[in-house]
Nucleic acid binder design. Structure first.
Length: 343
DNA sequence: CGGCCATA
DNA sequence: TATGGCCGG
């Protein structure tokens, strides 16, 4: 999933997401929904389902997480992926194969009575279909939360909105938004910071805190331009190419500094990368749209109840208390620029 | 994943 | 009030 820059970035941990009160985040919607589909499951890996056997984990995640984050005064705009770039085909095919194998392993683990193993495998089987995407958009409409359809990669669109100043940061678990030119990336934009560590029998917890990653700060620390960072990513491998064997993030940065650009490194190493210029343009000149707004509206309670309670057997009292959390914050206008100027 | 209840 | 464990759909 994207390039892993975890070890080389300057990261600012945050004690609580409430530190971002008043901010608007552009959320990588697919990234987020996949997280819900993989983690909101029973111990044996079965996802939440309604009486007709339709998966509801994605709806549960969007409703409860969005409302509790917004209760802390942090607002989110969901950005959905458009059609994938043709060069992403191989990555998508690999993910499909991993899912299929995981499904077999899940069934095998259940057969053996290995509950923990079953859950771990089940988490890798999540499929996000068109119906689920449409349902999430309907739910967001009912919640009064804005969403945007990207023309291509959602992270590219979110990064564009961030660079324009329409949102304070891009929220994603992936680092690709930095390549797309987002000024600020936030990770672990979650409330309770306690995650169960997948371990045999023993209960271990890790503290997961929200964190900020500033593009300019990191480029300065690395001594690279964004163009060079993109070239480094291409060396390591992106969703659009395989990368050079033996080159990780650290050596990629060293090589870029020593040889200035991708071409220089490739000459030095005497290797080739296919479609290099096209991949560069995916990151540096992505296809984006200005056809969006970031306005929050009042929640449509009856629409939400119809969808969640009538159609999918959610608990009415839980849905109502989640919607209540959206009330106050939704009415306040989005004034990202003036807030930034003020702070 | 967050909500919520049992427990102390 | 704080923590851990299970439930939700």
């Amino acid at each position: 999933m994207g390039i892993n820059l975890r070890d080389i970035l300057v990261v600012h941990p945050e004690e609580d997401i409430g530190a971002w009160e008043g901010r608007v985040l552009a959320l990588d919607a697919y990234n987020t929904i996949y997280q819900y589909l993989s983690s909101i499951r029973q111990p044996d890996g079965t996802p939440l389902m309604d009486s007709q056997g339709r998966v509801t984990s994605h709806l549960s995640g969007v409703l409860y997480r969005t409302s509790s984050i917004m209760a802390k005064g942090v607002r989110m705009v969901f950005v959905f992926d458009g059609p994938p770039h043709p060069l992403k085909k191989e990555t998508l095919e690999t993910r499909r194969e991993v899912r299929e194998q995981a499904r077999k392993d899940w069934m095998a683990a259940l057969e053996e009575g290995d509950i923990e193993g079953a859950r771990m495998k089940a988490q890798q089987t999540s499929v996000l279909d068109k119906t689920m995407v449409a349902e999430v958009k309907d739910l967001l409409d009912a919640m009064g939360v804005p969403w945007v359809d990207a023309l291509g990669d959602g992270e590219a669109q979110a990064s564009y909105m961030n660079a324009k100043g329409d949102v304070w940061a891009v929220a994603s678990q992936d680092y690709d938004s930095l390549l797309f030119g987002s000024e600020l990336l936030v990770r672990n934009a979650t409330l309770s910071g306690r995650r169960k560590l997948p371990g045999r029998g023993r209960r271990e917890y890790v503290q997961v805190v929200p964190e900020r990653v500033d593009l300019r700060e990191n480029l300065k620390a690395m001594g690279l331009t964004r163009e060079q960072l993109v070239d480094a990513a291409i060396l390591v491998g992106t969703d659009f190419n395989r990368g050079i064997k033996g080159i990780g993030p650290k050596s990629a940065i060293k090589l870029l500094k020593a040889h200035r650009d991708l071409e220089g490194v490739l000459r030095f190493k005497d290797v080739e990368v296919e479609h290099a210029d096209e991949i560069r343009s995916i990151f540096l000149e992505p296809v984006v749209t200005d056809d969006y707004d970031t306005d929050f509206r009042r929640a449509d309670e009856s629409a939400a109840l119809r969808m969640l309670v009538d159609d999918h057997q959610f608990s009415e009292s839980r849905v109502l208390s989640a919607l209540k959390k959206l009330e106050v914050k939704a009415a306040e206008p989005t004034q990202q620029r003036s807030l930034d100027a003020f702070l």
